[in-house]
Amino acid sequence: MPSFDYIRPILLLLGSNVFMTFAWYGHLKFGNKSLMLVILVSWLIAFFEYCLAVPANRYGHEVYSAAQLKTIQEVITLVVFAGFSVAYLGEKITINHAVGFAMICGGAFFVFKGPL
């Protein structure tokens, strides 16, 4: 079983990405609100994103390379965004989305595989 040092940055990045997704896309359900208001609310939400992302990267860099951390973050972003777009925005994930996401995850495999 991996040590908590490997799991902690993943959990922090997961939380960070939930905040990030709401900050960037949550306002789409409120198209009638002023742009300035949604920018301010998004900044407030993003503050909590940063409170998780910065320690995630600091702790994570002790056990992962920067490229591995970024790859983990991107895969988590896709998973969180896919769930968010279906559950919150009511959008559907199409086969094209699934294939594209799978290709990105395939790229992540090579980042963690090591030298060929």
Score class of each variant (00 low, 15 high):
residue 94 T to Y: 10
residue 110 F to W: 15
residue 92 K to V: 13
residue 110 F to T: 11
residue 48 F to W: 09
residue 69 L to V: 09
residue 68 Q to N: 04
residue 62 E to M: 03
residue 64 Y to N: 04
residue 76 I to R: 02
residue 36 M to A: 15
residue 66 A to P: 04
residue 20 M to K: 02
residue 80 V to T: 08
residue 42 S to P: 01
residue 98 A to D: 03
residue 80 V to Y: 09
residue 71 T to C: 14
residue 27 H to D: 05
residue 83 G to Q: 06
residue 20 M to L: 13
residue 69 L to Q: 05
residue 90 G to A: 02
residue 26 G to Y: 00
residue 30 F to H: 09
residue 12 L to Y: 12
residue 75 V to H: 00
residue 44 L to I: 15
residue 66 A to M: 10
residue 6 Y to Q: 12
residue 68 Q to F: 07
residue 15 G to M: 08
residue 111 V to C: 07
residue 30 F to N: 05
residue 114 G to C: 08
residue 84 F to C: 03
residue 81 F to S: 02
residue 33 K to M: 12
residue 42 S to A: 13
residue 76 I to K: 02
residue 9 P to R: 07
residue 50 Y to W: 13
residue 1 M to G: 13
residue 48 F to A: 12
residue 85 S to W: 00
residue 44 L to A: 15
residue 60 G to M: 06
residue 90 G to H: 00
residue 73 Q to Y: 11
residue 98 A to S: 11
residue 28 L to C: 01
residue 62 E to V: 01
residue 47 F to R: 07
residue 112 F to T: 13
residue 106 G to R: 11
residue 104 I to W: 04
residue 45 I to P: 01
residue 84 F to G: 02
residue 22 F to V: 06
residue 34 S to E: 11
residue 26 G to F: 00
residue 5 D to V: 06
residue 25 Y to V: 00
residue 90 G to V: 05
residue 53 A to Y: 14
residue 42 S to L: 02
residue 18 V to R: 01
residue 104 I to Y: 06
residue 45 I to K: 01
residue 50 Y to I: 14
residue 21 T to H: 04
residue 35 L to G: 12
residue 19 F to V: 01
residue 46 A to V: 09
residue 52 L to N: 03
residue 9 P to A: 08
residue 112 F to V: 11
residue 62 E to I: 00
residue 57 N to I: 04
residue 83 G to Y: 03
residue 24 W to L: 13
residue 29 K to T: 08
residue 53 A to T: 10
residue 81 F to D: 00
residue 10 I to V: 12
residue 94 T to D: 07
residue 45 I to N: 04
residue 79 V to E: 00
residue 26 G to W: 00
residue 79 V to C: 06
residue 57 N to C: 05
residue 80 V to P: 10
residue 81 F to P: 05
residue 6 Y to T: 13
residue 31 G to P: 03
residue 65 S to V: 02
residue 58 R to H: 11
residue 81 F to K: 00
residue 80 V to M: 03
residue 77 T to S: 06
residue 35 L to P: 03
residue 34 S to W: 02
residue 97 H to R: 03
residue 40 L to C: 15
residue 32 N to Y: 00
residue 6 Y to V: 11
residue 58 R to M: 08
residue 36 M to T: 15
residue 78 L to T: 07
residue 115 P to A: 15
residue 48 F to Y: 12
residue 49 E to I: 07
residue 26 G to L: 05
residue 16 S to C: 14
residue 11 L to Y: 05
residue 94 T to F: 10
residue 84 F to Y: 06
residue 37 L to Q: 14
residue 8 R to W: 13
residue 97 H to D: 09
residue 96 N to K: 07
residue 49 E to Y: 13
residue 45 I to E: 03
residue 22 F to H: 08
residue 113 K to R: 15
residue 109 F to R: 10
residue 108 A to T: 12
residue 6 Y to C: 14
residue 94 T to H: 11
residue 29 K to C: 06
residue 99 V to S: 10
residue 21 T to N: 05
residue 63 V to Y: 02
residue 15 G to D: 06
residue 37 L to M: 14
residue 114 G to H: 10
residue 28 L to P: 02
residue 110 F to C: 09
residue 93 I to Q: 10
residue 91 E to T: 07
residue 17 N to G: 00
residue 14 L to W: 07
residue 113 K to W: 15
residue 76 I to E: 01
residue 65 S to K: 08
residue 77 T to I: 01
residue 6 Y to P: 13
residue 75 V to T: 05
residue 101 F to H: 03
residue 14 L to C: 05
